[in-house]
């Protein structure tokens, strides 16, 4: 892994990486990926990726009254205006 790889991961994950952190992340990832690499050598044959779990879907109907949770949820938001969550301009 290069310094650029670490910075790119930070960019993808939207986490700012401080220059002084790069080396230690690199060192950690090299040892962790070195360990993980052992799965490459296992022959799993022709298995299609499957998942252990099955979805249990509930009826797609709302049991709540409009606005029931709005004030609770909005009160958690750091920045609100007129009942909306306020964010910086996106475009």
């Amino acid at each position: 892994m290069t310094n650029e790889d670490i910075l790119k991961l930070g960019e993808l994950a939207k986490i700012e990486i401080k220059p002084e952190e790069i080396e230690s992340f690199k060192k950690d990832f090299e040892s962790i990926l070195g360990y993980i690499k052992q799965i490459e050598s296992v022959d799993v044959g022709d298995v299609s990726p499957s998942y252990l779990t099955e979805n249990i879907a509930r009826e797609d109907v709302s049991k709540n009254t409009p606005g029931e949770f709005s004030s609770d949820l909005l009160s958690s938001a750091p920045n609100t205006e007129n009942g909306f969550i306020k964010v910086k301009k996106i475009l």
Binding site: I39, V42, V44, V47, S48, P49, S50, L52
Partner: peptide
């Protein structure tokens, strides 16, 4: 990595 791990998990 990911797909291989899912298969191995299975």
């Amino acid at each position: 990595y990911y797909n291989k791990a899912v298969k191995l998990r299975h």
